[in-house]
Amino acid sequence: MARVNTVLGPIPSEELGFVAVHEHIGYGMPGSELDTRWWKSPEQRYEETVPKLRAFHENCKPYGAATFVDATGICNGRDIPYYQSLSEKTGVHIVASTGFVGGDTALPFFERASVDYLTDQFLHEITVGIAGTGAKAGIIKVGVSRGFKMKELDLRIYRAAARAALATGVPIFTHLAVDVEPAIEVFHDEGLPLHRVLFGHADDGVSQGKVRDTWIADQGGRIGFDTFGYDLELPDPPFWGRPRQERLDHFLRYVQGGRVDSVLASADANCSPLGWPGVKGHTVNYLFEVLIPALREAGVDDDTITRIFVDLPAAFLSLQTPSPTTSPS
């Protein structure tokens, strides 16, 4: 049976339903918790978050259940007991991640850590639980530090993630798909098939011209169109925003060009951001309010939409022990 770790325990992948594969309950850079300008009362955090998750749950009903994959790694405000309460009260499955958004979000203790230690950290969070909660991570987050250049610490985290993914069968998703050659080298080196990796934010505005997305897809990697909704048409768009139509056209080239199985899609929205203002009005429900209608208008049929948001993520998230591509040396 294919299973997926959620914060309330493992569930069969058949129960996932509609999956938003790269989202955040709340994200903040490490240290932002010291700056009171961002603080919110617990009442405010629940008020900002619960209605979005309930709407997501309603929107997902035609697909069965609702699954929200939280991409907030260690040190960025990941808060498992909070996620558990949200999941229990709203009915949304929440998958938590181990790993780090990037080397520059790993605090000094982990910056000093070896590949072996980082591997053990990820293994523990996937097989035993996160921070004494009993909730097991369902996916590993890795990423590229600011500056579009893979750093040594980033790669140490990628290698540990590859080993933990091979040992446990959980997949990996990345923050940014730029400077991807060294990452792919690490995955090859460790023997992790690239279909176990979602190369995220391949669709964002600042990455364009720096992402070899078809090159990644040709090797079996999954391409993350996972910043849907960060549109430059917004009143105050973030620096990674992109013209709405341009992103959609990019996505459609995959979906209508025979590469639908290479994509996964999400909105990367914060329900209630922790250490930054967030982007007003942008929620996970963009997927239903804007993206799916736009796909239908472009002629994408319902089976394909179900494939993108139900079948492909279920296969990706299912714990599986992949056959190594090569024997690790």
Binding site: G28, M29, P30, G31, S32, L34, D35, C75, D104, T105, L107, P108, E111, S145, R146, G147, V206, F239, G275, W276
Partner: peptide, 15 residues
Amino acid sequence: AMLGGYFLTPQTNPP
């Protein structure tokens, strides 16, 4: 080296 990323690579462009 003991600081969090919030102070070193903030979510601004450039960081």
